[in-house]
Design a protein around this nucleic acid. Structure first.
Length: 139
DNA sequence: GCCAACGTTGGC
DNA sequence: GCCAACGTTGGC
């Protein structure tokens, strides 16, 4: 299984919005960046992801699961753009802030730190474990 | 609200 | 195919 990070702005798509979709999940659409799209093409059913909020919160707030592999993005006719579907699995007992992530030397290589603008990014298993721990989840 | 970093576009 | 111009993102 692989691990990922999905970035959103709460004003566009919040964790509550995601939770509201329940087990059916929702398209992670609207991505118009090749790197991000390519990562979504690599995703497999059951892969896990962190749900991260940029701008105001700047924190990972929940865990999601890929529940549909890459398919055309329904918000455009442009065949170049594809997306996966994700569903909320659980809310982190305590959100893990960007500040905390930056403060931990073990996480200094995270894409989130190195290329903060990429909206869909891979997370290593070690990074995943550390963040879950910080967020109050047993792994 | 500012600005640096980055990606994309389009003229040549 | 290069690169300047532009638009967008996101941390501060």
């Amino acid at each position: 299984m692989r691990y990922w990070l999905f970035k959103s702005e709460a004003s566009t798509w919040s964790w509550e919005d995601q939770l509201g979709k329940g087990d059916a999940g929702e398209e992670w659409n609207g991505v118009r960046n090749y790197q991000a799209r390519n990562f979504m093409r690599e995703m497999a059913l059951g892969d896990r992801g962190l749900f991260y909020l940029s701008q105001k919160e700047k924190a990972a707030v929940g865990i999601v699961e890929v529940c549909a592999e890459a398919h055309p993005d329904s918000t455009t006719d442009d065949a170049r753009w594809e997306c996966v579907d994700i569903r909320a699995l659980e809310t982190l007992p305590s959100p893990v802030t960007l500040e905390q992530i930056k403060a931990d030397p073990r996480l200094s290589e995270m894409v989130l730190v190195k290329n903060s603008r990429l909206s869909v990014q891979p997370v290593t298993e070690e990074e995943w474990r550390i963040i879950c721990e910080m967020g109050g989840l047993a792994t």
